[in-house]
Design a binder for these strands. Structure first.
Lengths: 241, 241
DNA sequence: ATTTTTTGTGTTGTGTACAACACCAGCAGG
DNA sequence: CCTGCTGGTGTTGTACACAACACAAAAAAT
């Protein structure tokens, strides 16, 4: 829904009347989503030719996408070896989280946009998706909802550079939970716990939206990003011992 | 000094034993600097083949550089037309400045690095360059010093994502002064005034560095970025009337 | 047996020819 | 005089062949 236009068929291949720019965006979003949902786990080798075949083009139009994803820190091309999905580490991501925490607050501060009725409805829909999820917990679906929720929150600021940067940092960090949690023994318990907490976050933020206080949205978000990272670090530490 | 390795000859062309990654960085830095010093003014058309010839390669290795610069918002490739240096507008840059103001403060907050003797020396050297500059004012040299000073400040935080993002935003905004000022009648007076103010900023920051208070560095920087943009906007407004 | 060399295979990086597209000048038609 | 068309020219986008490189396995030497 997020990465596929209605016209797209299951494989990314041939779409009629698609400009080169739109195709770039499409392939870019598909690959980025795959990386963040661990369809391509860290360390995976992506062959340019395979991707070219899948999307029905030659290697050439694929390369700009890979170059961009490399600039974002999600891929790394190595001559003679392959294009490798970057590995991530909780400790290395601490700085990114620190920055995300600060930026979260700015979303409510810089050029806040009073949400219209449609946006409010989307937030409520998110609440519904959360409840459905907590009924049948699924890590992948959780990650997807989390992603959609992020984009919704991001649309609350009119500051476009801030949106762009927040998005970039989000995609740099979001894989870490799936990766860390999937290795742990109490995987299922962790997931359900995390979903519950997320559900509360969404509920809190919906309340704040109703009141119309975007500053408060920023505070809530800030708190949750910060706590989420601390939980993650604790779990990673327990695993090490 | 910033964009050329000691081995480089005047034209960017052939360098021995240079990996493809280093070459990418070199070309990237050269082009970015040229854009920000208005060697390539907004609207300029860069022909890939010309660049290829200058750097002694085919179009192929040039394209990743242009793609990256396009992702940073400095270029825009249009099929059948050319690769065009983006135009900039004071009003459009307001959001970027708002963000830069906030990030400036974070540099003193997130993972501050206590500067070693060498770094302090570089700051003092900056002071000397300022005085030399105010002796013989030159807009281009002013922009260069400003750029070097930025990089020096940026090295005060250990938060690498923050450094990267600050740099990106800096390069998005830095052209605007040269562009705006060069159109005004009191160009020379403005330049001298700006140099004086910058000199004071450097002096203030050097003091703060001496005291060892990076938080204060952030505050000073924040104030100056904010005021600098307001002056810019006023000048642009006066021009319009 | 161990180490070194060589050879083979697979991948990204590069060069080059061509396709797709935009733009302008010139011209025909009104 | 103006308008719309049409061809010519220049540019980026694409495809493909090959070079450069990394890695592993096999072979050769000690």
């Amino acid at each position: 829904m997020l990465d596929e236009t209605p016209v797209a068929d299951k494989e990314g291949a041939p779409i009629a009347d698609e400009g080169s720019r739109q195709r770039f965006e499409r392939i870019y979003n598909v690959l980025r989503t795959r990386i963040c949902l661990l369809d391509y786990p860290p360390g995976e080798r992506l062959r340019e030719e395979d991707l070219a075949e899948e999307f029905g083009v030659s290697r050439t139009p694929i390369r700009p996408v890979l170059i961009t994803l490399e600039a974002e820190g999600l891929l790394r091309s190595v001559h003679g070896v392959g294009t490798i999905v970057t590995d991530i580490d909780v400790d290395e991501l601490e700085q990114v989280y620190q920055l995300r925490v600060e930026l979260a607050e700015l979303i409510g501060k810089l050029s806040p946009i009073a949400p219209d009725a449609a946006t409010v409805a989307k937030f409520r829909a998110m609440l519904a998706r959360c409840e459905a999820l907590s009924g049948s917990p699924d890590a992948r679906e959780f990650a997807r909802i989390n992603m959609d929720f992020f984009h919704l929150l991001n649309s609350l600021t009119g500051n476009e550079p801030l949106r762009e940067i927040s998005e970039r940092l989000y995609y740099q960090t979001t894989r870490i939970w799936l990766k860390t949690a999937s290795r742990l023994s109490q995987y299922r318990e962790l997931l359900m716990n995390e979903i519950q907490i997320f559900q509360r976050e969404v509920a809190d933020i919906v309340d704040a939206i109703d009141v119309g206080d975007l500053q408060v949205v920023g505070y809530i978000r800030r708190a949750h990003i910060s706590m989420s990272f601390q939980r993650l670090r604790n779990e990673a530490r327990h695993e090490r011992l």
